[in-house]
Write a protein that binds this DNA or RNA. Sequence first.
DNA 1: CTATCTGTTCTGAC
DNA 2: TGTCAGAACAGATA
Length: 310
Amino acid sequence: MPELPEVETIKLGLQRKIVGLTIKNVEIRSPKTFIGDHKKVVGQKVLNVWRRAKILGIDLDRNLTLLFHLKMTGQLVLVHSAKCKVQSRKRLSTKHYSLNTFVGGHPTPDMQYQMPNSHTRVIFSFSDGSHLYFNDQRRFGWVKIVQSEKCKVQSEEVLGKLGPEPLEEGFTWQILKTNLLLSKKGRINHKSQPVKVAIMDQEVVAGVGNIYASEACFNAKLDPRKKVKDLTDQEFKKLHQGIIKSLKEGIKHGGSTRAHFVNAEGEKGYFLDYANVYGKEGEKCRGCSGVVKKITLGGRGTYFCENCQK
DNA sequence: CTATCTGTTCTGAC
DNA sequence: TGTCAGAACAGATA
């Protein structure tokens, strides 16, 4: 699932496995998905893998960086060795498979893990024989080549306008409050927005998507409908902590689920298990005796407990 | 079968 | 200026 915790999980996995390798080939199956001249990255070595908001970056030689955005249904699959290619579903052993592949992004049924599949848009081949598959069912995601130097945090040119990284030190409750209350031209005024909608703006805080926005409000015991301008300092503090907690739990989960990802039940277990409210409509609240309700805010599904989120 | 839902983000109309 | 629908697209689910 391509929100911050998922992209972070992919980053950690790729860091261990592709740094130092050289790209031997790039196959583009969906031209719209790849922006730039793919030939430029062939022959370049992977220097580093990083993340900013929901964007994944792979630094290469020659001041080149590959940027990935998975959008809603993007997925990255690294298959280490062609020798261990899975032949049929019956032979799909979790242990065997997880040793040789690394998967991150949008969950799909396990049959689809034979790579490439019908959703494969770009394939990178590395010097050690491994392959990185960029899959994206809805083709909203993209890969692009940019100059590494343009990826500096301050630069809006290639990464867009992004607020602070929620898991870094610079993200304090005061910064969150400032960004939420800031009103200046060219920027959305969040004051009259529901708090859940406001924290999904990447300029306020980077990387919070629809799931974690609901989860953050639950952790903060805050009604997602509450207007930003009505929040007290105490509530900004709770919101700040709620965001951090939800993302950290997501990362913890993303890391621990990876190995089980290929199980038959893996897909459902993927996020429904750890979420407190997301996707839990009608279920008992984990924090009180209430029932989780689903509403629409800013056009997006929103889950919360009316009883304990005030 | 049809209708409606979906984890993202940008654009343009009103 | 703020709000909203629609566009990119494809599949799962009711």
